[in-house]
Computed example of a mutant assay.
Amino acid sequence: MSSPSHDTILQSARRLFGERGYRGVTVRDIAADAGISAALVMKLFRSKEKLFAAAQPDESLLTDLDVPTSELGRALVFRVLMRRERGVQEPWAMIPFAIQDAPDPDAARAEIRERYLAAVARAMGDTSPDRRAAATVIALMTGFGETLRTLGLFDHWGFDELVAHFGPIIQAQIDAAPPPPGNPLSLNA
């Protein structure tokens, strides 16, 4: 269970780590941004490394989606756009920074890759050993999230226009996932 202080610290940490990276932010910076003492930050998180790990994007952006698989592409794009409209940090865009700026980038890459692959594969029903379709969806969503955040290539597009254009692109990869073994649509059946 988290406290209001815990949530405030995480919110500040996510924003500051996202803007400046791991090395560009101190515990004091986060504490000042959160309006909390650095001692409380350390008491709750124990180290800058543990705070960084706690502040990283997670796969929960998929676990609470309650849409049929046939609508997952549009739902994912819709959520990115809603976060942009609300000025909320974009988890898809933060994945590269979370890895690059981690104290141990190789460990962070392996851990984040597995978490996201497992969650995306589960959400879209990709049971293939290499989860290739899930990996493609992650790449597309990461690129889409980062492009919206940094390049502004689609600033002149309307919300519905972006959902209508990019939703089917993501959905095509979701639909490309091989059916689960034993499924009547499986080529191996």
Rank of each mutant, 00 (worst) to 15 (best):
M1W: 14
P4A: 07
H6N: 09
T8Q: 07
I9D: 13
I9S: 03
L10W: 04
Q11C: 14
S12T: 01
A13M: 00
A13S: 00
F17I: 00
F17E: 00
G18E: 00
E19I: 04
G21P: 05
G21M: 06
Y22E: 01
T26Q: 05
V27S: 09
I30F: 01
A31V: 03
A32R: 10
D33E: 09
D33C: 09
A34T: 02
I36M: 01
S37A: 03
S37Q: 00
A39R: 15
K43T: 08
L44G: 05
F45P: 00
K48D: 02
E49G: 00
K50T: 08
L51M: 02
F52W: 02
Q56Y: 07
Q56F: 08
Q56I: 07
P57S: 12
P57V: 03
D58F: 02
D58S: 12
S60I: 07
S60Y: 11
L61D: 11
D64C: 07
D64M: 11
D64V: 13
L65N: 06
D66Y: 10
V67I: 06
P68D: 11
E71Q: 14
G73D: 04
A75M: 07
A75F: 05
L76A: 03
L76K: 05
V77N: 03
V77H: 09
M82F: 10
M82G: 12
M82N: 14
E85R: 13
E85C: 07
V88E: 11
V88F: 06
Q89F: 06
Q89I: 14
E90P: 08
W92K: 07
M94C: 12
M94L: 12
I95M: 13
F97P: 12
F97I: 15
F97K: 15
A98M: 07
I99V: 15
Q100W: 08
D101Y: 10
D101P: 03
P103H: 11
P105F: 01
D106Q: 15
D106R: 15
A108K: 07
E111I: 03
A119G: 14
V120Y: 11
V120D: 07
A123F: 07
A123N: 04
D126N: 05
R131W: 12
R132F: 11
A134S: 04
A134L: 01
A135Y: 00
V137R: 04
V137G: 01
L140C: 09
G143K: 08
F144N: 03
G145H: 01
E146Q: 12
E146I: 10
E146R: 15
L148K: 06
L148C: 06
L151A: 15
G152F: 03
F154K: 08
F154W: 08
D155L: 13
D155T: 15
D155M: 12
G158T: 04
D160C: 00
E161R: 11
L162V: 09
V163F: 06
A164S: 11
H165V: 08
H165T: 11
H165F: 14
G167K: 13
P168V: 08
I169N: 01
Q171R: 04
A172M: 06
Q173Y: 04
Q173M: 02
I174W: 08
I174A: 02
I174L: 06
I174H: 06
D175K: 03
A176M: 02
A177Y: 00
P178L: 08
P179K: 05
P179Q: 02
P181W: 15
P181L: 09
P184F: 01
S186M: 03
S186E: 10
S186R: 06
A189I: 13
